[in-house]
Amino acid sequence: MVVLIPLAKIAIAISILLFIVTYLVYFERKISAWIQDRIGPNRVGPYGLLQSPADVLKLFFKEDIVPSAATKFVHSLAPVISLTVAMSTYAVIPFGPDIEIFGQKVRLIVADVDVGILFILAFASIGVYGLTLSGWASNNKYSLLGGLRSSAQMISYELSMGISVVGVLILAGSLRIYDIINSQQGWMWNAFIQPIGFITFVVAAFAETNRLPFDLPEAEPELVGGYHTEYSSLKFAMFFLAEYANMIIASCLITTLYLGGWHLPFIDSATLSYGLMPLISVMIFVAKVLFLLFFFIWVRWSIPRFRYDQLMNLGWKVMLPLSLLNLMWVALLVYFFKI
């Protein structure tokens, strides 16, 4: 039983992740189409719902091309790093309060780590290696530029991201994600208490996930495909999967750190029956995450890409001071109001 429950959790978490990623791609295409007054995929299956499985199948059957000048081992290693990192970050994200199954208390999290936030930040940093190594190993100038850009971008934005998170940690007094969520009951959402930190974190999350206003590592018009120019078949699929998995993780993180996790101001745990509460909590959490995912896609099809110097200016001259300002604001709040 001790082994079975974590294994079951891992299986459920990974299958849910893969399922959401598959349909996230579908909805990305649908929403982009709707925003551009088009209809979007609607040929494979009813409403095009089988489009993503068809795409995956197609990628399975594609030839796996490795450029002859590439560093073969690293070239194969890079997508694995990207995907492994993206998936293992999932382990420390809780998606509901404790529940009881067959008299056993089960936490809706794969690994309840004391240093949850640190774990996520550390793994997000490892994720850069996937992109940078793929850019370098492909032995292609466009890939290399994409990889270099991704590392520069990650370094610049991880800083402001980390400092924004410190604000949250001061208020929660713990690195454990459960404690952070429970410190945001009622109206005490961090998004309301520290709006500047919220904005800097969201912007940094966009940069970390390489989503559109900051998708310089792949910047199709300039760099062909960026770091994954020389990838095909399942290796490309792994990068693709990692990108969307990162998006889900970023949404989960924003929800847990700033939007109160599964807490909603109007829903009080006292008024609801005990059995129903976990279900509603999970639904609230999922709804918030889904909204954020929609927001990610929505932003992608609304805002043009930053230029490289603008990106660096924004990262170092705007985001960093702003996140420091937020840190001071939170420190003052704690000092004077003892929240």
Partner: peptide
Amino acid sequence: KGLLLTLKHLFKPKFT
């Protein structure tokens, strides 16, 4: 402002 514009298009009738 830009996001609201694209949101408006999300619900518009399609040309396709």
